[in-house]
Simulated scan of single mutants.
Amino acid sequence: MTEWVTEALHDGLRSSFRADRVLYRRPVGQQDLVLYENPKFGRMLALDGVTQVTEADEFIYHEMLTHVPLLAHGEVRSVLIVGGGDGGMLREVVRHRSVERVTMVEIDEGVVTFSQEYLPKVSDGAFDDPRLDLVIADGAEFVRDTERTFDVIIVDSTDPVGPGEVLFTDHFYGHARRRLNPGGVLVTQNGVPFLQGAELTGTMRAFGQLFADRTCYLATVPTYVGGPMAFGFGTDDKSLRRVAVETLADRYRKAGLSTRYYTPEVHRAAFALPGYVQELLDAA
């Protein structure tokens, strides 16, 4: 019989993906981890039915959460990735030749091993990059305790339930702020604001206490239902979200990038927010 993986993350809404072939399944605590093949999205990884990553559209999420802060900053040498065990964020960061060191903190080494074996297209060899410092530790504890500082911090977290919940707290954001170099940028994934508005408002409220400038930008990822995703953007340099398209294009060209979703024009447009999203920011 055909199996369907059903996601019920949002109250009153369910979405299902057909699993033509289940490649891996095991319980994780009280949750169910399943890797399967779908005719539209290729290999898909779901935790308790909630889609984590797909081969077909992961590039949108990873490109936008990486290239927007790095190209807005323009002189990034050091990057911290919190989470991101599938390696997609790492893949995009190491494409920037100016980056000298990437520290990636993943709580579960098994996630990295699993992803390299079953989702090798996502990392595309990035774990072999000599600039990588892979740390297996709790991301919140690492950010609290480390003495290192970074130009950009990327929080590639799951939704704020279970182990990922701590990465959405005021304490975590405060520690992350202290690990940024002057003019640095903190970016976060904040779900789909049409369905998860409180998540975005909570992050923006914390950012408002920590940064001279805080906002979010948007990108549409097909498998994350409910409209565009929001990415939190916090910095003390108010000019960074208004970098000219011509400047972004020059930085993009010098970096030698080739992307499938990100463009300098999309970068600038992503900060133009619909009214309902701006209302969530205003509420913060």
Rank of each mutant, 00 (worst) to 15 (best):
M1D: 15
T2C: 09
T2L: 15
T2Y: 12
W4M: 15
A8C: 04
A8K: 04
L9I: 04
H10Q: 05
H10I: 13
D11F: 13
D11L: 14
L13H: 11
R14C: 12
S15L: 11
S15H: 15
L23D: 09
L23E: 05
Y24W: 10
Y24D: 15
P27V: 05
V28A: 13
G29F: 08
L33R: 09
E37V: 10
N38D: 15
P39H: 09
P39T: 05
R43C: 13
L45I: 01
A46L: 01
L47H: 06
G49R: 06
G49V: 05
V50G: 02
E58P: 04
M64Y: 05
M64L: 10
L65N: 00
L65W: 00
T66I: 02
P69Y: 03
P69M: 03
L71C: 08
G74D: 12
V76A: 13
R77K: 14
V79K: 06
L80K: 08
I81D: 02
G83D: 09
G85H: 06
D86E: 15
M89L: 07
L90W: 13
L90H: 06
E92T: 00
V93E: 07
V94A: 10
H96M: 06
R97T: 10
R101P: 05
R101I: 07
T103V: 02
V105A: 14
E109S: 04
G110W: 11
F114A: 09
E117V: 00
Y118L: 14
P120A: 10
P120F: 11
V122A: 07
V122C: 10
S123I: 03
S123M: 04
D129F: 04
D129E: 13
L134P: 12
V135G: 08
G139S: 07
G139P: 06
A140S: 13
E141Y: 09
E141K: 15
V143D: 09
R144C: 01
R144F: 01
I154T: 01
V155D: 11
D159G: 03
D159I: 00
P163S: 09
E165I: 01
V166G: 14
T169L: 14
D170G: 10
F172S: 07
G174S: 11
G174W: 01
H175G: 01
H175E: 14
L180T: 07
N181K: 15
G184V: 10
L186W: 01
G191F: 03
V192N: 04
V192P: 03
P193Q: 08
F194R: 15
F194K: 15
E199K: 03
T203L: 11
G208H: 12
L210W: 14
F211A: 11
A212K: 15
T215Q: 12
T215A: 06
L218E: 11
L218A: 10
T220K: 12
P222Q: 11
V225K: 09
V225W: 15
V225H: 12
P228E: 08
M229Q: 08
M229T: 04
G232D: 05
G234N: 09
K238I: 00
L240Q: 07
R242D: 11
V245S: 08
V245D: 12
L248K: 02
R251P: 02
A255V: 02
L257F: 03
T259P: 04
R260G: 06
T263S: 13
T263I: 00
E265N: 04
A269W: 00
A270D: 11
P274Q: 13
P274H: 07
Y276N: 15
L281E: 02
D282M: 10
